[in-house]
Design a protein around this nucleic acid. Structure first.
Length: 133
DNA sequence: TTGTTGACCTCTT
DNA sequence: CAAGAGGCCAACA
């Protein structure tokens, strides 16, 4: 058998296959964790914003997947601060319990009504803007 | 191995 | 104005 690359990484993160044409060494997920973990308290952002910040706004779905993998990842990311474009807490159902997400947002001073962030436009935190500094 | 699903977003009809 | 389909990357069956 052809000797393969290095052994598995100690971390449960991205075993990954050979990257094409020297792309990013880091997986898409790690970038999501980095940005999401930098969301200031009392602020919220959207999946598309993070994806766009990474360069691929079309990969908004992967952002959601990344957050889903957070549960079995060592990175601690405030996923409760990440909502969809409509400011709707679409991922609340994935929390334990789901109402925990809404509770955390209210606890940070974010008004939530009908699973929707109030004044989402004001509380919106654009990573591409803050991280650009 | 391939195929489908997934916490989405944007464009087109 | 509303509804539908496409597209992205990664994990699971």
């Amino acid at each position: 058998m052809p000797a393969k690359k290095k052994a598995k990484s100690p971390a449960n993160e991205k075993p990954s296959k050979a990257l094409p044409s020297g792309a990013r060494d880091v997986s898409f997920f790690e970038q999501v964790y980095e940005v999401a973990s930098q969301i200031p308290r009392g602020r919220v952002t959207s999946y598309g914003a993070i994806a766009a910040c990474l360069g691929t706004k079309l990969s908004a779905r992967m952002v959601g997947w990344a957050l889903n993998n957070i549960h079995h990842s060592r990175f601690k990311v405030p996923a409760h601060r990440v909502v969809n474009r409509n400011g709707l807490l679409t991922g609340k159902m994935h929390f334990k319990p789901p109402e925990k997400m809404e509770r955390l947002l209210k606890k940070e001073g974010i008004a939530v009504k009908d699973d929707q962030v109030v004044d989402f436009d004001k509380l919106f935190w654009d990573p591409a803007r803050e991280l650009m500094l």
